[in-house]
Nucleic acid binder design. Structure first.
Lengths: 134, 134
DNA sequence: TGAAACCGGACTTGTTCAGTCGGATATTTC
DNA sequence: GAAATATCCGACTGAACAAGTCCGGTTTCA
């Protein structure tokens, strides 16, 4: 299976929504959840991760919410995925958890070619920024 | 999560192993399982799928086994994945199961950009053939 | 006839994902 | 200061999926 998680999908939709708003305007999680019919609690957690990673700023309390912390052109899709998943999208387990995680590692014959595919995929996610999604 | 399944990993290792043998030589599932310490039963099923998709030929009975059905240069990695998983590696659910599978579809704002990422990834898997892995 | 090999469905187990719940903290407004 | 609104965050549940196992079958050859 090679698929983006729902969390990442929601995160992309959400941060794009925030990016469409004029500079300085603040958006609540509820507004996003209602607009796109995304489960509120789940979306909230995704937004918290984006906040902890510094992609968006949060404001608590009444009239609180979220705003972009960087310019859209500075946020590649790969950064959004990393913020939510905790790692880059890695095509094979041994690439993210190291050789010990793979009991076939020493005898594995596809490491090298897969690394090249991996590089291609990273490039795909790195070169597209938020500004191209808006 | 964006990761290749173990089945695909085993399939790649296996078909590569078969491809390294001289033309006409037949390889058993047991030999491959032993060489790479892959669970035999699981590997057997992967090989069966590769057979049904026409990538390799199988021979039953004593001295049976598998051999390549096409030239390595004619087998892109994407074809191997498709044979094992049943579909191309699709980054989002709505791309493989259609709009009905996604209850956010009509309001989803990231379809178009994701399609572009998808195209990049497909290219990565299409351009690499078995002959580059051997 | 028996051994070696592929064929293929059913099953178990473990992990991960999606979603929910409950309570805590911060901020504004009245 | 109290109430309302919002983020914060850990724990939990249920469903889906992946990985691996089991078992009975078929084909072929010696």
């Amino acid at each position: 299976m090679v698929r983006l998680s729902k969390k990442v999908e929601y995160g992309l939709i959400a941060i794009r929504h925030i990016a469409t708003k004029p500079f300085g305007e603040i958006v609540t999680a509820k507004e996003i959840a209602d607009t796109y019919r995304i489960p509120y609690e789940l979306l909230a957690k995704v937004l918290q991760k984006l906040t902890k990673s510094g992609l968006i700023n949060s404001h608590q309390g009444v009239h609180g919410g979220y705003e972009l912390a960087m310019r859209p052109g500075e946020i590649p899709v790969s950064m959004i995925i990393h913020a939510i998943e905790g790692t880059q999208p890695m095509i094979a387990q041994c690439m993210v958890e190291g050789p010990e995680s793979c009991d076939v590692f020493t005898v594995c014959t596809i490491k090298t070619p897969l690394t090249r595919v991996q590089a291609n995929i990273e490039r795909a996610f790195n070169t597209m920024t938020l500004s191209e999604i808006v």
